[in-house]
Design a binder for these strands. Structure first.
Length: 575
RNA sequence: CGGGGCGUAGCUCAGCUUGGCUAGAGCGCCUGGUUUGGGACCAGGAGGCCGGUGGUUCGAAUCCACUCGCCCCGACCA
């Protein structure tokens, strides 16, 4: 391509509302343009990068034995009602009525549609295993789109669904996907980490996320330096603490006017936070859930939801007052067993005795409260969030906490959807069985953003060559110099013939402008053809990442550049 | 949904507090000339419903009310 013929609207100034490096650089580099909150146009450079990513994804999916198809984004709401997920997704699901008044939704993910396909066409175990994928635009009415392409309301996702006859088959399918994902992210040049994950609204048992550590990520993950354990913070199990006997001191009510936070209670009563018990009130449908955690611990809602076995929602102020009989900040477990609440205590509570809780009465707390004697949790579970200082659940080593961008997620779904949608097959004994399913997502349009977050400098993007919009940027310093342009054109057509993806900057601009745009856009290989070099029969080649800068004889140019390009690609493919 | 901020030229912003001439600057864009290895220079030029609606006023970019949109933090999130 010739630069002069392309729409590459680079800009010097950073748009006001871009904060992340990836967001800023993609706008400044002329890759994307925002239209509304959480929607973007992919400009020519942007769609080139996106195509490079989708092609890698497609190749590796096919290599792993999956088959591509394309399902509609526009779907009848009824298919969501069949699995109850219209309620689980709630307002996140875009929904509207057509002219005949039929309720429609825009797909956020496609478990229902694919399961419908499976139940229609798959009848025999002989047709299994099967893995179907698509690369498609998804819609989610997020409460708050943010971070440029990190979280948008319309985005491109690769989703795959596997169908197996049994758990062993699912294990194999899952493994194949896990490996395909590793190859995909390596080829895209991402510094990714697979972590154990929670399966959230998708459901299912085993699940891994592929994370790209970045301070701007919206997820948190933990890693253990000694044993290699890595998990989403939501998933990170915490070892049960040694149980201690309950205390025997008598419960005593004390006045604690206006102390609604742990810090206030702690300093008012001169009791350290780890002697306090926090009582948080949630709802799970009609059910009231009381979550009990130690004062200095944080509740993890994903873990609580898992312990309860249903989606949960924090109760609002009025509801808290109705349930506890006191303003927010004074709830406690004592007496709540009789009020029909489901009480979940964190494991750490077993290691507490004679602690302080809210009195379910304004401006009052109770001292010397003890479990079993004064209240009885329905269940003890690991419901608190891992935090600094917690030990690795596998080896006891030190955990480190980092922010990360989730780029992929693989789930073992099991038979949840197939049973709910009555999707099954006949096994070799002629018996009807539900499909054992897996599902596997990649945030395709997040990949470029994640790559930039970890590959940029003050001048611009530093693309991994595999997902750069062009592999080589060829810059003649002075387009009015005929002789120089002839050399540049010769190199250009030679590279094109060798299958190198090259952009010729034929604009009548000063060299400085071209260099600055080159660095902003981030093309990995830059070739400069200028009068100085031509005099000596050479041109300059410089890698954007700074790892190489050299002069190459014009005669060897095409071969040398092709070789370097291939080396850069190979380096990522082998990882 | 709670808290905060912002809407003036394609982009970044000034002007608004204290209402008043024809609404400004830099960058970008167009024309001509000079320049040509790190965002050149000179001269000329195009480009604005001052987010929208309603009000106050002789007069509104400026004050008031409502509204729409965007961003950030939080909550939420596959």
């Amino acid at each position: 391509m010739r630069y002069s013929r392309m729409l590459i609207p680079t800009q010097k100034e950073t748009p006001q509302d871009a904060t992340l490096p990836s967001h800023m650089l993609m706008i400044r580099g002329g890759y994307i343009r925002p239209l509304a909150a959480g929607t973007f146009t992919y400009l020519p450079l942007g769609i080139r990068t996106l195509h490079k990513v989708t092609e890698i994804v497609r190749q590796e999916m096919v290599r792993s034995g999956a088959e591509e198809l394309l399902m509609p984004a526009l779907q009848p709401l009824s298919i969501w009602q069949e699995t109850g997920r219209d309620e689980i997704f709630g307002p996140v699901l875009f929904r509207f009525d057509d002219r005949r008044g039929r309720s429609l939704a825009l797909g956020t993910t496609h478990e229902e549609v694919i399961t419908d396909i499976a139940r229609s066409y798959l009848r025999s175990y002989r047709q299994l295993p099967l893995n179907l994928f698509q690369i498609q635009t998804k819609f989610r009415d997020e409460e708050r789109p943010r971070g440029g392409l990190i979280r948008t309301r319309e985005f491109i996702m690769k989703d795959a669904y596997s169908f197996d006859r049994d758990e062993a088959g699912l294990d194999a399918s899952y493994q194949a996907m896990y490996q395909a994902y590793s190859r995909i992210f390596s080829r895209c040049g991402l510094d990714y980490v697979p972590v154990e994950a929670d399966s959230g609204a998708i459901g299912g048992s085993v699940s891994h996320e592929f994370m790209v550590p970045s301070p701007h990520g919206e997820d948190s993950m933990v890693t253990c330096g000694s044993c290699g354990y890595a998990a989403n913070v939501e998933r990170c199990e915490l070892p049960a603490m040694e149980e201690i006997p309950a205390g025997t001191a008598a419960v005593e009510e004390v006045e604690t006017p206006g102390t609604t936070t742990i810090e206030q209670v702690s300093s008012f009563l001169k009791v350290s936070p780890d002697r306090l018990l926090k009582t948080l009130i949630y709802t799970a449908g009609e059910k009231i859930v009381l979550a009990l955690v130690r004062g200095d611990h944080e509740l993890n809602e994903a873990k609580l939801a898992r312990a309860v076995g249903a989606p949960i929602e924090m109760a609002d102020g009025p509801l808290v007052e109705k349930i506890s009989g006191a303003a927010v900040g004074f709830a406690g477990p004592v007496g709540m067993n009789d009020r029909g609440a489901f009480m979940v205590a964190d494991n750490a509570v077993k290691a507490m005795a004679d602690f302080v809780t809210g009195a379910n009465k304004n401006d009052a707390h109770l001292l010397n409260v003890n479990r079993e004697r004064d209240f009885a949790p329905d269940v003890y579970a690991d419901i608190r969030a891992a935090g600094e200082g917690d030990a690795c659940p596998r080896c006891g080593g030190a955990l480190s906490f980092v922010r990360a961008i989730e780029v992929g997620h693989v789930f073992k779904l099991g038979t949840r959807y197939s049973e709910m949608m009555n999707a099954g097959f006949l096994d070799d004994a002629g018996k009807n069985r539900p499909f054992v399913m897996g599902c596997y997502g990649i945030g395709v349009s997040r990949i470029p953003a994640a790559a930039i977050e970890t590959h940029h400098d003050e001048k611009g993007i530093v693309w991994p060559i595999t997902i750069a919009p062009f592999e080589v940027l060829l810059i003649p310093t002075n387009p009015t110099d005929q002789a120089l342009m002839q050399h540049a054109e010769a190199l250009y057509s030679g590279l094109l013939e060798n299958g190198v993806d090259v952009l010729l900057d034929d604009r009548d601009e000063r060299a400085g402008v071209k260099f600055n745009d080159a660095e902003l856009i981030g093309v990995p290989v830059r070739i400069t053809v200028g009068p100085r070099g031509i005099k000596n029969g050479v041109f300059e080649l410089k890698l954007r990442d700074g790892s190489m800068e050299s002069e190459i004889p014009l005669a060897e140019g095409v071969a040398a550049v092709s070789r370097i390009r291939n080396e850069l690609v190979d380096r990522l493919s082998k990882a």
